[in-house]
Amino acid sequence: MKEIKEFEKDIASIRSMMERSVKFISLSGLSGVLSGIYALIGAGIAYRLIYYPLPPFGYFHISILDHPASIFNLEITAFLVLIASLVTGCLMSVHKAKRQQTTIWNATSKQLLKDLSIPLGTGGAFILILLIREYYILLAPTCLIFYGLALIQAGRSTYSEVMYLGLTEIILGLASAVFPGYGLILWATGFGVMHIFYGAVMYFRYER
């Protein structure tokens, strides 16, 4: 006959197996903080290209269309921020997985990518269309809303903070659609400040 201690251990192991087999636990919070910093640097460059020396909001008196030559620079900046964030996220998650003695490519990470792919793919294609059609005013809300939807979808296969970050991004995205002149500020809040905040929360909760 088993001891009561062993029954408790059984229950604990059931809980941990259910959790670990569903959730991708190697996602690095620290890489979220770094992505947030890249986004803020990117937003700073965008501010210089669009608004400088005026304050960073409003679209009646100024817009990117006043600086057609800057549009290409802006696109390069956005692309570099995206690539730097992806590379940092992958590398640091591989590192975290090693420390947890697991691998990065497993059933949970595949599920996570599957969850992310449709909303991010749709959003990415939509953003390219906006760029081609020159609907620049819609860029910030589109980035925020599609990214938020992707994170909410992904939230069920990783830490729950990801889902809350997704909700925050959607709210900021809707706000930036209502106040188009504040797109850059709200984009910097969503991709910069919020990444740093939720990344730090994840770091302190799961990585220390």
Partner: peptide, 17 residues
């Protein structure tokens, strides 16, 4: 436990988790 929480799971993933 793993199979209760997931629709299906393959051998290698089971081994790892």
């Amino acid at each position: 436990s793993v199979l209760m929480a997931n629709d299906s799971y393959d051998f290698n993933s089971l081994k790892e988790v």
